[in-house]
Design a protein around this nucleic acid. Structure first.
Length: 544
DNA sequence: TTAGGGTTAG
């Protein structure tokens, strides 16, 4: 059955393609190129106006056009098909692109390295890295030459699927085999490494790429600057800024925004001001991200008047506040326990023509829970279900925490089980919340069972998980089990913190094992842990 | 002549 083209503009373009094909191949390419641009436009307008159906129509049109092209005699070249597949990938319809790729094969169209790279990209986006690499196998067996795009796509796939290390190893092996990578390939790896906090390795890689005759561009410098700033190495990030300038390149809005973020985190306002005036000199205009960072920094310092002034300034300079701006302000108010002020802002979203997102709801739900106003938190949680917003694991964890802290543990437990069965999978934070609740009501054996379940679900406990359980065991006077967990932390390369030591020292003291408590106190001291007042009070209490 | 990388908020 012939597919219908629903959009009139695309119908015209589609007809143009069929007509022009009979005359000239170049016209066909021109028409498809226009089609591709139109698809991108529709995809864009879908984002802008949130019209649910336009994306569906655009994808429908793309498929319809593909179906028409595949029936033309003689068949258009693979380039035309690649252009349609590329547009479908841009619309994130990966399974559709894969299915159309397969149809191409059935029609006897020989894929090019571009088609195969698109296919690899689809599998990577779907998290099917095994399939992605089997396509690479096809590439090699078929005598194609994988290029920098093919290899970068795979490296990015590994990075976004949580296997950055494998991506780095893969890069090393392809370089050793003589494949040539470019600045995008290195940028992908550097970004992957920075995102998992391996900034040092990223930095080394940036210097290594120069040995491969690939020079870092501003994008790579920006990623490094961002990574360094987020790790607190703002001085080093500034060094890279100087390198950009020294090499005759121009720092852009990303460079400045990342650096401003770094200095805001350190509270170095003078540097922030200096960067802002530097931006004026270099004619780089702050954008909504830059303003949001500044507003966030002001809110964290409780400078709400100045934060609102900054909001007005951004409007005056032609930058519209967005949902992040409002979320940032709401978050600031909640940080200082003023959930009512945050709620007032939330209620003005409509006036600003801004749609609240999951973050907006989460900020308020957490705010209400913190103030023990569980009814209002639950009302918002229920209101979310009436919108198109899908609560995420942060929403559920916050609500579960709120319910636990208000003593409604059975309801919290019900929700926890519900999301285990069907919902956003609980993460280690959700488990910690439930574990804490169980320990607080002395159900330490149930907590221990839940702790085992955490491993079964493939999650990794963190220091807080151990602290919660150790504290639970200590409060139940089961010091032996608490000490076993303490040892287990070491095996898992988890470094005990002040909370771990204080819980154990308290537990040991309250069980009359004061000499053991002292021993542990010295272990803590020797490990370089800054001892706080709580530690001394625990020991003083024990002595008195 | 189609395919791959970068900034914000819990």
């Amino acid at each position: 059955m012939e597919a219908q083209i629903k959009n009139p503009i695309l119908l015209i373009i589609g007809m143009k393609i069929v007509m022009s094909y009979t005359s000239k191949t170049s016209s066909l390419r021109y028409a498809i190129c226009k089609f591709s641009v139109s698809l991108r436009f529709f995809s864009y307008s879908q984002n802008q106006s949130a019209k649910k159906n336009s994306r569906f129509e655009a994808i429908g049109d793309a498929v319809a056009l593909f179906s028409r092209l595949i029936t033309i005699h003689p068949l258009p070249s693979v380039v035309e098909f690649n252009m349609i597949l590329g547009s479908i990938v841009k619309m994130k319809h990966y399974p559709t692109a894969i299915s159309l790729y397969k149809q191409m094969g059935l029609r006897g169209i020989t894929p090019s390295i571009v088609s195969l790279s698109i296919l690899i990209n689809c599998y990577c986006h779907l998290g099917h890295m095994g399939f992605a690499f089997s396509v690479l196998g096809m590439v090699l067996k078929g005598g194609y030459q994988p290029n920098a795009v093919t290899l970068t796509t795979l490296m990015r796939g590994l990075c976004v699927n949580g296997e950055v290390r494998k991506a780095v190893d893969f890069h090393e092996s392809v370089v050793a085999q003589g494949f040539v990578l470019d600045e995008v390939s290195y940028g992908t790896l550097i970004n992957g490494l920075c995102k998992i906090g391996q900034v040092r390795d990223a930095y080394e890689l940036m210097h290594k790429m120069e040995g491969q005759m690939v020079r870092p561009n501003v994008v790579i410098y920006n990623m490094m600057i961002d990574g360094l700033c987020k790790d607190g190495f703002v001085t080093e990030a500034c060094g890279l800024y100087s390198e950009i300038v020294g090499q005759g390149m121009s720092p852009d809005i990303f460079t400045y925004t990342c650096l401003i973020h770094g200095f805001c985190s350190l509270g170095q306002w003078q540097e922030v001001t200096r960067l802002l005036s530097d931006m004026v000199d270099k004619n780089v205009k702050p954008n909504v991200y830059t303003y949001n960072i500044l507003i966030d920094a002001l809110c964290r310092k409780r400078m709400f008047r100045k934060a609102h002034d900054m909001c007005n300034l951004m409007i005056k300079r032609g930058q519209r506040p967005d949902v992040v701006t409002f979320n940032t302000l709401m978050s600031g108010y909640c940080l200082y326990n003023d959930v009512d002020e945050a709620r007032k802002l939330f209620d003005t979203f409509v006036e600003w023509d801004i749609m609240p997102d999951v973050w907006s709801y989460n900020i308020l739900i957490i705010g209400y829970c913190k103030s023990k106003r569980i009814v209002e938190a639950m009302n918002l949680f229920n209101k979310m279900h009436c919108t198109n917003l899908v609560p995420n694991i942060v929403t559920y964890s916050s609500v579960i925490d709120g319910l636990c802290k208000c003593g409604r543990i059975s309801y919290a437990w019900e929700l926890f089980n519900a999301i285990q069965a069907d919902g956003p999978s609980p993460n280690v934070i959700t488990y910690n919340i439930m574990l804490d609740a169980l320990c607080k009501i002395q159900l330490i054996d149930d907590a221990s069972e839940l702790f085992n379940l955490l491993f079964e679900r493939g999650l990794t406990p963190n220091v807080s998980t151990y602290n919660i359980l150790i504290n639970g065991y200590c409060k139940s006077k089961r010091i032996g089990e608490a000490m076993n967990l303490f040892k287990e932390m070491h095996h898992r390369n988890l470094v005990p913190d002040l909370v771990t030591y204080n819980s154990l020292i308290d537990g040991l003291c309250k069980s009359g094992r004061i000499s053991h408590a002292w021993e542990l106190f010295y272990v803590m001291h020797d490990s370089g842990m800054p001892v706080n007042l709580i530690s001394y009070n625990i020991l003083l209490d024990a002595f008195s």
